[in-house]
Amino acid sequence: MKRRYISKTARIKKYNCIVQSYIYASGVKACYKYDSRVRQIFDEMPDGYDLVVGVLEHRHAAVITKLSDGLHCKIVVDYVPSNKCIQIMFKNMDSCTLVLKNYVSFFQAYAQGRFVTYGDNAIAVKFIKAFMIVQCYLSSISKRKAHIKDALPLEVKPAVIKSRVLFRGLL
């Protein structure tokens, strides 16, 4: 296999994408516990269903698996897709960073074609809505207002989700 030279900046961006994807996956896990809309979306899926978030051509991806005892998230290398998965893969690292750092909402990203999805689009749309809810919890107030002009009702305080992501997800 040809070994490619990747600059330091690109490597930092790549690791940044992996970390951001994992934070979002943890955010989904936290929202599953506290937000009924996210719980409803994931409860409709059968056990063993995977939701994968990553960047095209990158080996690492964040995988959220729905099991009987809830959601589990992890970073997987060289994920092998099955017929029980939805993949949301950003076209490049910049798109991933822009969306996962909340500069661009998931809805805008879908409209702008910043990512591709593999799997049934009807299910992918539901997951994108779930990510939108997570994004509203993880964003600052100004970005939340910019992303969805109508107040998306938040069922708990954003601080609850953020602290759960920080302490249960990362530490």
């Binding site: 030279y5 990747i6 600059s7 900046t9 690109a10 490597r11 790549k14 095209l56 490049n92 690292m93």
Partner: peptide, 10 residues
């Protein structure tokens, strides 16, 4: 060239 770096294509 920077845009291609890290994209998996040279």
């Amino acid at each position: 060239l920077k845009a291609f770096n890290g994209s998996g294509m040279d």
